[in-house]
């Protein structure tokens, strides 16, 4: 009924050549492009950025951009539209979430740095993960894009991926 505990499921995968224990003092540098769309009615997308384990469970939520100041519904009414994130992580969280919640962002590249000393990265075991960027736009579409990255050894080449409509170019670098 509930998704299996991420800790249990990725422990096996993480204890490998990379060794166990907390990660290096590295940060996760992410660039997310919010695509510029020519549509009659444009609303900035709600975006969830989270870390996915190899077994597709969530290892932690890094950021959720939504309209927490909406007088009507405090934005929470539409959080479920980021449906993959909602199912795997969002529905068990409470909002606003300290250090995670943020306002929606304008079109263009958005540079983000997630500290390795904070939040879900602080206890993330070294290993292979996906960074997932899922966007849902009012009267628009929904899309989730995955970018594989290795946590625990810095200096690798940045990984990148691009969505088709609702998510632009994403770049992920551990450094």
């Amino acid at each position: 009924m509930k998704p299996s505990l991420p800790l249990l499921t990725f422990a096996g995968a993480a204890v490998g050549a990379l060794g166990a224990g907390p990660a290096l003092a590295a940060d996760l540098n992410v660039t997310v492009e919010v695509p510029r769309l020519t549509v009659a009615e444009y609303h900035k997308p709600y975006v969830a950025i989270w870390i996915e384990n190899p077994d597709a469970t969530a290892a932690g939520t890094l950021a959720v951009w939504y309209d927490a100041n909406s007088k009507e519904d405090k934005g929470v009414k539409w959080l479920k539209d980021m449906r993959q994130w909602w199912r795997k992580a969002g529905r068990t969280m409470s909002f606003p979430a300290d250090g995670i919640s943020g306002a929606t962002r304008a079109p263009g590249p958005q540079k983000l740095v997630f500290s390795g000393a904070k939040g879900p990265l602080k206890d993330l075991k070294p290993g292979q993960y996906n960074l997932v960027v899922e966007a849902a736009r009012e009267v628009g579409g929904q899309e989730a894009v995955r970018v594989p990255f290795v946590w625990g050894k810095g200096g690798g080449r940045p990984a990148t991926a691009k969505g088709t409509t609702e998510v632009g170019v994403i770049t992920v670098a551990v450094k």
Binding site: E72, D73, K74, V76, K77, L79, K80, W86, R87, G90
Partner: peptide
């Protein structure tokens, strides 16, 4: 069937 928030 799947909703979020206390105004649901």
């Amino acid at each position: 069937t799947v909703l979020s928030g206390d105004g649901a």
